[in-house]
Nucleic acid binder design. Sequence first.
DNA 1: TTCATAGGAGTGAATATTCATTCCGTTCTT
DNA 2: AAGAACGGAATGAATATTCACTCCTATGAA
Lengths: 199, 199
Amino acid sequence: MSINKLAGSKPITNKREDILKAALSLFAERGYDATTVPTIADKAQVGAGTIYRYFENKEVLVNSLFQECVRLLSATLLTNMPNNDRTMREQFHHIFVQMSQFANHHDKALAFIDSHSSARYLDESSVTMFQDFLDILRDFIERGKQQQIICPMPSDVLIAIVYGALIKLFKVIKTGVVEETPDLLLAAEECCWNAVRVH
Amino acid sequence: MSINKLAGSKPITNKREDILKAALSLFAERGYDATTVPTIADKAQVGAGTIYRYFENKEVLVNSLFQECVRLLSATLLTNMPNNDRTMREQFHHIFVQMSQFANHHDKALAFIDSHSSARYLDESSVTMFQDFLDILRDFIERGKQQQIICPMPSDVLIAIVYGALIKLFKVIKTGVVEETPDLLLAAEECCWNAVRVH
DNA sequence: TTCATAGGAGTGAATATTCATTCCGTTCTT
DNA sequence: AAGAACGGAATGAATATTCACTCCTATGAA
């Protein structure tokens, strides 16, 4: 057993976590192709060889990371998701709030997901997991369309509009160009809602 | 005088153009870091060394290409831009139509611009040119706010929402997931307008 | 008109560098 | 002491960039 573990329990220092964290930071900032494995090792304060103890290769690493990030994003979205008996507007509020929570607590993860979600090296499992995330938005949109509260347009188009707006919105907030206040968030939420609701 | 030129006139074959075209295609699909110079040379049907006759190095190439693409995008947006005496809605229609024109005729350029607009290797000139493009949107937004037709929110936030929505919208259309019909475009335009107008 | 030549575009093999991955000696845990 | 975890230099495969060379055309001398 490694120095790394309490008897029969979890590791004290988790190199795997360190590696994933370092990789997330670097991938989010420079992108997969511009990030070298030795750089990840340095940032994680780990030997280069250690990375290969936990991940078969760089592609496996990026896929593991992507899946973990998307899983967390989906879980965040689904946390305390209101029942269907709540209004669509209330459900939208929940989605917006949870997304902005995620953007605040996991800004790098959101940037990483968005910039890598159609990368050529993503495996089937990663692609599926990202689709599952989009399906959460799709379900919402489609229920809204049935109730004639959301515009009768192809769901993919509506998803693109809302998701695209949210991504760039949180990106501009993250860069600090505008100050993130509760009022601003509420107003931005209203904008996004107005984009998809029927008028 | 080279074989390449008509007397005192323009080149017959334009290798520089060929290189830029090949680079655009590859950068848009795989990204800058995943694209090798020899691959660009192959695609442009040009010797690898020829690229360095026209561009000092790979970074100069990507900046030249970026600036050319952004210049074209800005020019497209400004083409036949309605006067200020037209309604905000009419001006927005123009912006939307021109953007969708650009997305259709230069889909690779739009993808390239979006995925590289905050890349670390962009030089000052490229960054400025992209800012100039965003300023076209900003001007519109700010006039709309003055007239109290567009939401009183930070311009950067409104730009992010509209620009983000447009980018993902055209991306989903380009992938062929949804069919691009005039009706769909009109409906999507209305969605984007609803996002920023005051209610 | 014909031929030799200069000069510049174009080429792609060669070079120097960088990177992902491996391998083995060291350190830590039990 | 045995074995697992670790580190980081070594390796081999790519990659960006260079450079010596080819080829073409315009020029002008004869």
